[in-house]
Each structure stands twice: as C-alpha cells, then as structure tokens.
Design a protein around this nucleic acid. Structure first.
Length: 229
DNA sequence: AAAAAAATAT
DNA sequence: CATATTTTTT
C-alpha cells in the first residue's frame, strides 16, 4: 500500500521551531550585537593595523550555525530527552550515523559496496570535509587549486576527483558571489573567506601530509556517505 | 514546488 | 580542467 508519511517537519532549510524554554533568560535579539556587524569598527581597525577582518557575512553565520546544528545532531547523547526536531527523515530504513559519540578518529571505511556496480553513494560534504577542502585550497592558491591536486593534498580516502571538482565549482561561485557583494571598496585583499568555524576537528589526520614525495599508504579518514537512492 | 547539493555530461 | 546540465536530496 502506499507508504506515504506526512512529513510535516521543516527541518534543515526550512522553518525553525522556537523553543521558548531555551530562550528564557537570554537577552533579546535587539540587545545582542548583530553577528553581521564587525566587532571592531572599520576606523579603529584601520588605525591599529588590523586589516584581516574575518569577513563575517550572513552567509558565514548561516554556515556556522549549520555546523552547530550538525554538531548537535551528533552530540545528542545525554540530555533529558532526545531532540524532537532532529529525526532523520528515514524513508525506509533508519540510517546509522557513525558510532562512537566522541569519535576516535579511526575510521576504517570499508566502502566495499559489495555490488559490482560502482554506484557509490552520494558524498556528503560535512563541515569537517569542507574545512579541509578550504584549507588545502587556501594553501594552494587559486592558481594551483585544481581538482586533482586538491584531492591529493586532502588525502581523504574514497574522495574522487569528480567529488572535488564538483565541490570546487560551487565553492568558486560562492567566493565570487561574496566578492561581488562585498564592499566594493579599493581593498586589495579580496580573498577573505575560509571562515568556517567548525568545531574541533580531531577527526581528520593532518591536512596535507605531503612533505616531499607522497607517502601513499597513509590511511586517512573517510568521507561521509549517505545511502544512495 | 522550489532550492541546494552533488553527480554527470559536454 | 572548466563549465553546463541533469539528477538527487532537502
């Protein structure tokens, strides 16, 4: 019969249900310093030679909060009761999201999807992965930041060049949008991003373990995969 | 139904 | 390798 589940949850990129209990005692929005506003006034920063403003934009904030939510989903250990909002929209089978709560770091991923077909699951660019990506790109410079090199330096097993290429495409657009929308002032420093305040990422091995010649064989972390369709 | 993300094709 | 288009997920 029809397995039609009335999903009234607007999770992720939808509405947020406000839990007033959590807001009790907290200052009102009008009393808080807007995140979109720089902590250090432009004039003051200039006077004190503090040019590198992290460039906090609404997009950055949004990304950061997304990371926080992502963290909460996983850290839903103790706490009185489970979060009502973070239910996986399991269509058929519930997805097992990793195991160790504190993460050990050892991720032996046997993504031997058995089946012969190379129908790999969709790669999910988790904040950790993205951060790694950004770091590598930043270190390479827009000049050498090409999919192949990025993939190699990231050294994440299972990560394909196509994965990186696709993400890079989006990332470039993202950066572009940001630059165009940013203050069109005469600021030579244009590449101001990489502000991806992701929690402590002790989950991944060193970013670019490439001192001289690649020591292939270094087992690295694995990307987050989700069940494919 | 629309938007975002990732995959795939050119 | 870059960009465009299509598919999949939210």
């Amino acid at each position: 019969m029809g397995e039609e589940a009335p999903e009234e949850y607007e999770l992720g990129g939808g509405e947020h249900e406000r839990v007033m209990e959590w807001e009790a005692g907290l200052p009102g929005a009008d009393e808080l310093t807007p995140l979109s506003q720089a902590l250090v006034p432009a004039g003051l920063a200039a006077a004190f030679r503090i040019p590198p403003e992290p460039g906090r934009t609404l997009l950055d904030v949004h990304r950061a909060s997304a990371a926080t939510v992502s963290r909460l989903r996983r850290a839903s250990s103790s706490s009185s009761s489970s979060f009502p909002a973070f239910a996986s929209k399991g269509a058929g089978a519930d997805e097992a999201e990793s195991a160790g709560g504190a993460e050990g770091g050892n991720n032996n991923n046997n993504n031997t999807t058995s089946s012969s077909s190379s129908k790999r699951a969709r790669l999910v660019w988790t904040p950790q992965l993205h951060k790694r990506f950004v770091e590598v790109v930043a270190h390479l410079g827009m000049k050498n930041a090409v999919p192949k090199t990025i993939m190699q330096l990231m050294n994440v097993e299972g990560l394909t060049r196509e994965n990186v290429a696709s993400h890079l495409q989006k990332y470039r657009l993202y950066v572009k949008r940001m630059q165009g929308l940013s203050n069109e002032g005469p600021s030579p420093s244009d590449h101001i991003f990489a502000s991806t305040p992701v929690p402590h990422d002790h989950l991944l091995p060193p970013p670019y373990p490439m001192p001289h010649h690649a020591y292939a064989a270094a087992v690295s972390s694995y990307p987050h995969y989700h069940h494919a369709n």
